[in-house]
Write a protein that binds this DNA or RNA. Structure first.
Lengths: 149, 149
DNA sequence: GTGAATGCAAACTATTTGCAAAGGT
DNA sequence: ACCTTTGCAAATAGTTTGCATTCAC
């Protein structure tokens, strides 16, 4: 199989392998979207992904971006995150593990690490409600240092 | 001022008073939307609010529902909550304090009470990042009792 | 009476679908 | 060669805007 992009990214390779394993075809448009998602350090809207990915696949259509995002989030390689303005951003799963600081002024989204253990919080809730909690999303809203002036 | 609805709700009255205080007019469409929001025990989409509120104000337009929701959430009497399907629900602030259990199968959203004190979690983050946290959104994703079969 | 608020229609934005053409295996 | 995937155009869903009319004050 011929090499398409000169930069190669192990995260991209891993997802490509998974796609192949499941019988999906490794197309140029899919690679381009994947490349953009895996090299990004924040969450991107479909339109932004479209613009960036055309660097790798100039004929890429926005529709294909949507379809690829849907495929990848179904496989849990990317996560969809809700934005204050009502539309959605997408980020690779490791980035989007549910902990965000969102500035209500400049709208920047900061990931914060750690804190994966919310079991003190979650365990009693599971017991009381019978709900089986598989994942969590925690967003903290406020003002970033720069916007507190 | 003449009584419009036979049922009267102290929560509705409180918000009406606040609207008046700020110089907004107490119109029938606004009352109808407010009535629906304050008597509901879950979060509603604008369309649902529109349908229900026409019981109180038959000429109510969907546009006015949106405008009223925007006004009320600006005053923080209602909160907008993100739904998995991409559109939004609105609920009175007491209901929507940011804690949801969302079932990935039947998509029902359950509010869970208490747990307002996340300061153990939030304080260290504020210290480390310089972020000023004003509010939080916590969603737990998983399976409700009925969908665990 | 006056200006804020409403309802309609139309605009707009984000996203999805139908279908013929292109491309991976 | 086959059948998935693509890109386009058009459809759809949620939400916002322009404007003449209505209504609270």
């Amino acid at each position: 199989m011929k090499k398409i992009f000169n930069m190669s990214n192990p995260k991209v390779e891993r997802v490509l392998a998974d796609l192949k394993r499941l019988g999906y075809r490794l197309t140029r448009p899919r690679r381009s979207v994947l490349q953009v998602l895996m090299e990004a350090d924040d969450c991107l809207r479909p339109e932004e992904i479209h613009v960036r990915a055309r660097r790798y696949c100039p004929t890429l259509g926005l529709v294909t971006v949507y379809r690829t995002l849907s495929l990848l989030s179904g496989m849990d390689h990317v996560r969809r995150v809700h934005r204050e303005d009502g539309c959605h951003g997408y980020a690779r799963t490791e980035l989007a593990h549910g902990h965000h600081l969102i500035c209500r002024d400049c709208h920047q989204v900061i990931e914060f690490p750690g804190l994966d253990d919310l079991s003190l919080l979650i365990d009693p809730i599971e017991r009381e409600t019978g709900f089986l909690v598989e994942d969590h999303l925690l967003e903290l809203l406020g003002l970033c240092p720069a916007c507190q002036g």
